[in-house]
Each structure stands twice: as structure tokens, then as C-alpha cells.
Design a protein around this nucleic acid. Structure first.
Lengths: 207, 207
DNA sequence: GGCGTGATCTTTACACTGTCAAGCTAAAGA
DNA sequence: TCTTTAGCTTGACAGTGTAAAGATCACGCC
């Protein structure tokens, strides 16, 4: 056999195998052995890089959060420097994650992953939520309700994404989801705070 | 052995076993063999009543939806005959389901259950969502946006319940969730529709 | 180049899982 | 009473994750 004994970058290959398997075969197909086989190693090899299946799962989730963040950033960077447009775009990215990566979405948000033992997962999760929080910030007051607005929007987009993805009701049939969610966001009648109004007017000058 | 060969009501016992196992040991402990053992039968006995593990899972979900509906109805029936109070109470029941039955919540909303082959599951699901829809109805206009309001509230309460249950962010630490969600619902500034105003004033006369 | 060490993998074994099929038990109906 | 059918048990098997022993090999030192 001319296959080297040492893979070279097995940890990364296993994570990517997991992402691919989720994408092609769904959540039920994500097993340690499937990932190992796909990476071209024996079924017990992953044990060196991860603390069992839970460890691999956490690492795939951490990667999932990065993909999630990238989609939100991608959508946000497509729109004009307008606070509402930006928030709307970030939510669009959120919905894209659910739609384009259904199994990964379900893994990330539906499984009981042990956060405390994975620094990368905690970091990537915080980054992802931070993107949404910055999208909400222009509309948040300095009062205690400021945090409530963030919870509201987060609950809204997360709930919508979950229900949309489940497609468990006629209510979600045949819809342009991004368009509808935009309308829902509009229904909230979000009010820009005063300090953010002045920043908005300054931005064209910078560019 | 004085144990009868025929259990007598095995289907029901297996479903209840599943509910108990979820409650006591969490979602990962829900196996065919665990349910069979708990019901006092061999591991292959459930195959006569359910189409494998997916069939048992679907039946447990159907039961889960009933528990879900009961909680929403229970909370709704505690409050005054006021449209907003009723909607708020229904949402409180929704959040109670997530908090009091975390594993069941995750099973019902997080697993890919095959709906098309289980009439009871479809029916119970429709009943549950119907309760929420009736809570929204007094605030829905006859315009196409009427359905949007239902989606909005549904997304909101579902997202909030999911995130609260996951407890993945400091944003959800140390909170009275029912109180907060009430405030969030209040933030929406829902407007009663005209026909419902007249019904409200008629109700005391009926009683 | 040889040797030692540690990292990285393979192999083997085992227990748990769901499913299948044959066989057993017993309840219901003729 | 006999036959049929429902309802279960038993045994087998393949797939799963984990543990432990063993093999391979990369690297550094002499």
C-alpha cells in the first residue's frame, strides 16, 4: 500500500467528512464510522483527535457556526449601509443557513452539545450571535428593554427559520421566505435611536 | 410465570414508557429496547404495534402534541376572557411545554418525523397549532397580512421557547421567561379587530 | 545510520442498537 | 375441539461507539 500511515491532517478531514455527510445524507447518517471511512481511516482513528462522537459532533458544530456567520456577513455586506437593510440582510443570512444547510442547522440547534469543553465552539457561537446583535444595536435603547429587542428579533428569526425548515404546516407552503420575513421585520416598526441617526448621515462621507 | 403472554395494552404502555424515559433520562436514552424493557416485554415485541423505531417515535410525538395542547388550554382557561390575556396565556403554555418537557420538546420539534404515515400525529399537530391560531385570530385582519400575524407570533414563541430551552447564551440567564415573553408580546402593540371588539362586549351577557 | 520516544494510526473485542425471521403462546371464532 | 390469527419470544445478524493492545512512522538525538 502506498497510502501513508499518517493522514497528515486528519482532524480537518474528519470535520469536513461530517459536513459532507450531513449535506448529502442528512443527520441520521452522521456516524463516527462514516466520517472515518470517508476520511480514509479506520473507525477508531478519530478517537485520537476527538473525545468520542460527542467531541466530533462539537467540532462539526463549531464549523457549522462559522458557515452560519459567513452567510450572515455575506448577506449583510451586499446591502447599502442602512441600519434596517443591514438587519434584514443578516436575518436573510440566518434563513439561508437553515435552508441551504438543513441537517447542519438541526445538528447545531437541535442537539445537546457540550459547550463547556470546546473553546472553539463557544467562540464561534459567540461570534455568530454577535453579528445578529450588532444588527439589532442601532434599534436598541439604553433602557433594559434594549436587550429585549435583541431577544425579540433573535427569537423571531430563529423561530421562523426552525418552522420554515420543518415545513410542518400549510402556513409555510409556497412562500418566498426572505420576502415574508422582511415584511415581518417591517411590521415591528423598529425605531432608529438618535445616536445612530447621526452615524448614518456621516457614513457616505467616509466612503 | 404468572405473567400473561399478551400484555393487554402494550401499545399504550410502550408510548408511556417512551414519555417516562424521555422525562427521566433524556432524548439519548430513548431506544426501542429501553421502551420494551420498561413495558415488560421483549425487544422485538414493539414491532407488532409500530413500524420500527420511527413508528414508535411518531406515536410518542403524537402524545407529545397532546400534552402540548393540554398545557396551552390549561393556561388559556386560567385567564379572563380578554383576547390579549388569552393569547399571552397560550404562549405561556407553549413555553411551559419547552421548560417542563425539554426532551419531549426536542423530540417533537427537532427530529425528522414522518408525518404522512401517522394520522393521529397529523391530527394532534393540527389541533395544537389550531389553539395558537385561535389565540391570534382576534388580532388578525382580513387582509393577506392576517396570516402573517399568525406566522409572526408563532415564530416568536417558538423561537423564544427553543432558545430558552437551549440556554446557549447569557442573554437567557436568570430570567422570568413568562414575564419577559409577555413584555415582548406587549411590544408588538397588537390591535384588536373591530368584529372582535363587539364579541368581547357580548360575552359577559352570555355568562 | 541507529535508537528511543511519542504521535498516530490499525486491529480486535465487546456491548448496545434496530431489524428480521422462525417459533411459541393464547385468544377468538367456527 | 380444532383452526386461525393476534401477539409475543428467541435467536441471529449487521451496524454503532468505545476501549485496549499493538503496529507504524516521524522526529530528534547521538
Amino acid at each position: 500500500m502506498n497510502k501513508p500511515h499518517h493522514h497528515g491532517d486528519l482532524r480537518e478531514a474528519l470535520i469536513q467528512a461530517g459536513i459532507d455527510i450531513l449535506s448529502e445524507h442528512g443527520l441520521a447518517a452522521l456516524t463516527l464510522r462514516a466520517c472515518a471511512a470517508r476520511a480514509g481511516v479506520s473507525h477508531a482513528a478519530p478517537a485520537h483527535h476527538f473525545k468520542g462522537l460527542p467531541g466530533l459532533t462539537a467540532a462539526i458544530c463549531a464549523r457549522g457556526y462559522r458557515i452560519f456567520s459567513d452567510l450572515m456577513i455575506e448577506e449583510r455586506d451586499k446591502v447599502a449601509p442602512d441600519a434596517f437593510a443591514r438587519l434584514s440582510a443578516i436575518c436573510k443570512g440566518y434563513l439561508r443557513f437553515a435552508r441551504e444547510h438543513p441537517a447542519l442547522f438541526r445538528l447545531v440547534f437541535g442537539t445537546k452539545v457540550d459547550f463547556c469543553n470546546d473553546a472553539e465552539l463557544m467562540q464561534n457561537s459567540a461570534i455568530a450571535y454577535g453579528i445578529l446583535a450588532t444588527g439589532c444595536a442601532p434599534f436598541a435603547t439604553d433602557e433594559p428593554t434594549g436587550n429585549r429587542l435583541e431577544i425579540t428579533i433573535w427569537s423571531l428569526v430563529h423561530g421562523y427559520a426552525s418552522l420554515m425548515q420543518n415545513q410542518r404546516s400549510d402556513a409555510f407552503d409556497d412562500r418566498d421566505e426572505a420576502l415574508e420575513f422582511d415584511a415581518i421585520l417591517g411590521d415591528l416598526n423598529l425605531t432608529l435611536q438618535r445616536n445612530y441617526c447621526s452615524e448614518s448621515s456621516r457614513e457616505p462621507l467616509i466612503k
